[in-house]
Amino acid sequence: MDTGIDPATGVQALFFYLFSGVLLGSGFMVIAARNPVHSVLFLILSFVNAAGLFMLLGAEFLALILIVVYVGAVAVLFLFVVMMLDVDFAALRQGFLTYLPVGSVVAVVLVSELLVVLGGLGFSPTVEVTPNAPAPEPGEVSNTVALGRLLYTRFVYFFQVAGLILLVAMVGAIVLTLRHKEGVKRQSIAAQVARTPATAIEVRRVEPGRGI
């Protein structure tokens, strides 16, 4: 999305700093908030701001997917879990200080490894010469179209197998958890619809001033 303006200036810059600032702030609040429900709400706020950042980059498909999938489904699921399961978050946090030294050692090791790998050597020059899938010119197609073109042509095999994996996951969840309990009354719509007035209603003559 080349607008001809330097992205670091003007309205774009303003929105960039707005979104990033709120994103960082709410991201911090996710782990700092005492009430887990507030954590989830801050998580939603950070998702929305991240979506705004994607919008600024011209990746409108990712922005919308982030809202639909993460806010619409994942965060709501989190809310359900937080509200329905009685998780004692205070107890979960108790070990925090005891494990802090070990945790920070692991973190330092990981960060230094990343620095060694990424900082010291840089990427191979072939990456720029031989990109796996050349991106189309942003002006020509919207990125929803561009993604769709790739997914349903070149990557159709992966796309279909990913669908199969999701199917197997669903079958697996049902196999392992669904139980048909004996003696549970279930709704049978066919039986309900098939009822006639003769079986459904009983007409009684009620004398005034008396009960049945």
């Binding site: 992966f158 994996i165 392992l176």
Partner: peptide, 16 residues
Amino acid sequence: ISLYVGLELQSLSIYV
């Protein structure tokens, strides 16, 4: 990518 999707399809079935 095909390595990964094949592996996941196999593994997920076997976990269950």
